[in-house]
Simulated assay, not measured.
Amino acid sequence: MEFTVEQIAFMLNGEVRGDKTLKVSQLAKIEEGTEGTISFLANLKYEQYLYTTKASAVIVDKSFEPKKSYSPALILVENAYSAFTTLLQEYQKILSDSKKGIEQPSFVGENTTLGDDIYIGAFAYIGKGCTIGKNVKIYPQVSLGDNVTVGDNTTLYAGVKVYSNCVIGSNCTIHANAVIGSDGFGFAPQADGTYKTIPQLGNVIVEDHVSIGANTCVDCATMGSTIIRNGAKIDNLVQIAHNVEIGKNTVIAALTGISGSSKVGDSCMLGGQVGIAGHLHITNRTIITAQSGISKNIKKEGLILSGSPAMENTENLRSQVVYRKLPALEQRLRELENKLK
């Protein structure tokens, strides 16, 4: 589809500096822009490309003042990065809206309710007694167990598996091959050294506006529910164990593992490869840097933690300085011992 610069500026509540009638039909990086594309400039490290780009339009902050001449029209907004994100979302919506109807072969179980304007891809399986909202996109090879609920405007990409009785909210995105509701890791050791499986009878509840990345696993609860609260964003290859609760607007980067029955508060940020032991509580607004290990409750809000076992980031940085000096300190200690002898 093709839009004028003026139409895009109206959509973004921005103003145009330059030719309002220029037409754009694609998005591009500023350094790769060509005629008919639109880009953005949010990081001044890329300012040099504004003066050489062939893009027809560039979104910039209102506070930005060019230092040289440039050719594209500028769309001035409060926050260029946020505005371009909005544009990406609208572009994605236009592309996804073309997916409608039920492809064959696919299977829909008895007593399942399908909302309006849905898409079900080939080889998808939907069990008995499910409730699927309006404008839901279910891509090929998705499998939904019995009595699953999927809210309005949610997208399940190819290969997603949702076990029986799980609940997926509205406006969610679950990426390819994620598994929602698989058994929690529950095994009771026996006297003879074997392990007895503990039945996992609960479910998973994913609230609204949640994003879950590819190949991420969210285990069902032993009893009750594993819960992902509103607005949480979870990266690829994350493991969330049984009875875990992830708070509102918390973000979790790839390869993080959260052990059973731990609770992560609202608006937390977990870096890549973070590990959280079981039955812990991480309070609101906690930031945990990459590869950190959490082995105790975090009660004070707003802390930045790093290291394994994790400690406050400033303490960990000071410890790292000492750690790097250990070989030299050992040598000095040996020299002192030799002098004493």
Rank of each mutant, 00 (worst) to 15 (best):
N284G: 02
E35K: 09
Y81L: 13
V322C: 06
Q291P: 02
A28M: 15
V244P: 06
L156E: 04
Q320T: 02
H281Q: 13
G257E: 08
V218P: 02
Q291M: 11
V179T: 10
Q190K: 10
T197M: 02
K93E: 05
I287Y: 06
H209F: 10
P140V: 00
L305K: 03
T149I: 12
A73T: 02
K67I: 02
T52V: 03
V274F: 07
L336I: 11
G18Y: 09
V210H: 11
T52K: 14
T222N: 07
D152R: 11
R324A: 08
E65M: 13
D117M: 08
I8D: 08
E65A: 08
V108I: 12
A253E: 04
R334H: 10
I118L: 06
I240P: 14
T53R: 08
L317Q: 01
D117R: 03
T131Q: 14
K299L: 10
G33S: 11
E103H: 04
N203Y: 14
C220P: 08
Y139N: 08
F185N: 15
L50M: 14
S39F: 00
A191R: 12
Y51F: 09
T222D: 07
S306Q: 00
A124H: 02
Q239G: 12
V58L: 02
L156P: 02
E65W: 11
K325I: 01
F10N: 14
G159D: 05
V206Q: 12
Q239S: 15
E31D: 11
E6T: 09
I30E: 14
D19A: 04
L280I: 05
N243H: 10
N171W: 07
S170D: 14
C166M: 07
V179P: 01
V142W: 00
V218C: 12
A158R: 07
V251T: 05
L76D: 09
L255C: 13
L303K: 04
I287N: 09
S306M: 01
V274M: 01
N284V: 01
G33P: 09
E15H: 12
L114G: 03
E110S: 08
G224K: 07
T194E: 07
G33C: 13
S106T: 07
V179M: 00
I198Q: 06
S182W: 09
G109L: 01
G101R: 14
I240F: 11
V77S: 05
Y119G: 00
S39H: 11
S211C: 09
E90Y: 11
A241L: 05
C130T: 00
T226V: 11
V179K: 07
D117H: 13
H209Y: 10
N147H: 06
A122N: 06
